[in-house]
Simulated scan of single mutants.
Amino acid sequence: VEGMIGNGYSRELAERIYEQLRGFGSYGFPESHSASFALIAYASCWLKRHHADVFAASLINSQPMGFYSVEQIVRDAREHGVEVRPICVARSHWDCTLEPGNRPGRMAVRLGLRLIKGLKAQDMAQLIGVRGEAAFRSISDIWRRVGTPVAQLELLAKANAFALAFGKDSRGAKAQIKILSGKPLPLFDETEIAEPELELKRLTDGQKVVLDYQTFGLSLDQHPIAFLRPDYAQRGIITCRDALKLPNGRHVTVVGKVQTRQMPSAANGVIFMSIDDESSDLNLIIWEKVGQACRDAVFYGGLLVISGTIQREGEVVHLIARMVTDITRDLEKIAQRDSTASLTLEGTGGSGLEGGHVFNTRPAIQINSRDFR
């Protein structure tokens, strides 16, 4: 104020300008910041609208970042007509790439090797380089020509990366990798190792999905809850999609896998949560009192049953939670399920060959939500 007075402004005007600036400073954005953010938002919306395939691949390749997980990005892309193809040792690069798609004017997204947990970029760069010289003929051909460590080949097998190239599912590929050891010798540089055809137990559909989630955090085949839906339907638990269709004020019970939790410091203890099932996403509002009463489930649960009331304002729908129950242990049942039948298959809970295990996989899917404060 004194500076403005010194520059010839009246005290009344100087104090009025100061109060306006102080009020704006408590909530306002600089214009340059607003303009920059608006440009990024517009460009992102335009890209997703006109090039959803490019948008999805770019977001996945930029991970870890932002609010949404790879699983959510892939699901949203597929719901907007983008074809997403599985990881393949003969076609995938480290990053997600675009391939000619089945729809005119639209490319398909090939998932990249970067999504496989524990895979090393250096080993895969070498594999991709050798692959460019001549296509691989078999798993042993990769091991012989590239020298890829057996442990890395096992991760590729667990991700079902040999299925398209060699017709070997996770279990069959892992069985053939077991005969490889150490490093290939120069004597065998041009010798193809015979890969025995073994009679293996078929993986259940549930086991395949469990392996997918354990290996790269998503599955292109089934959502985990699809295998448990018959059980929940008998208890009157509806899908998220059906909940989104209900009128304002309707009481409902849903089940969902936690995607994100938001606990803003300015929200007075309110928790915002996003869940999903095989049908759709659903946003929850959990008041502080409910959050404290159901604290363990709200803060630590991965698979939840939520009872509450639909809040609808136009096209915006939330579920106001009244009760939250943690049922994460239900995920342990998935490996024993085939298709979506409510049936436990005897003898399929393990994951090995007759006389020896091929995979020692954990029976349950681990839910890794994104939590923000």
Rank of each mutant, 00 (worst) to 15 (best):
V84W: 02
Q126G: 00
S138G: 04
M124C: 06
D141G: 02
R103D: 02
P104R: 13
M124R: 12
C96K: 00
I139Y: 12
G147H: 08
N102F: 11
G147S: 13
K120R: 15
L119K: 13
I139K: 15
S92P: 10
I87F: 13
R106D: 00
G112Y: 12
Q152L: 07
K158M: 12
T97Q: 06
V109Q: 10
G105W: 03
C88Q: 14
W143S: 07
G101R: 11
I116Q: 13
G132H: 12
S138F: 04
W143D: 10
K158A: 02
L155D: 07
N160D: 15
M107V: 09
R103T: 05
D123C: 13
S140G: 06
M124Q: 12
E99D: 13
Q126I: 03
K158S: 04
L115G: 00
E133R: 02
N160Q: 06
I116N: 06
I116W: 04
A90D: 14
E99G: 08
L127R: 10
L98Y: 11
T148K: 09
L119S: 03
A134I: 10
K158N: 08
A90R: 14
C96P: 08
A125H: 10
W94H: 13
R103N: 05
R110M: 04
P104N: 06
I142F: 02
R106N: 04
R85E: 04
G132I: 09
G118L: 10
V109D: 05
I128E: 15
M124F: 01
L119A: 01
E99C: 07
L127A: 03
A157Y: 03
W143A: 03
L113M: 09
T97K: 07
V109I: 14
T148E: 15
G118T: 05
L119H: 06
R145H: 02
V89E: 11
I128T: 14
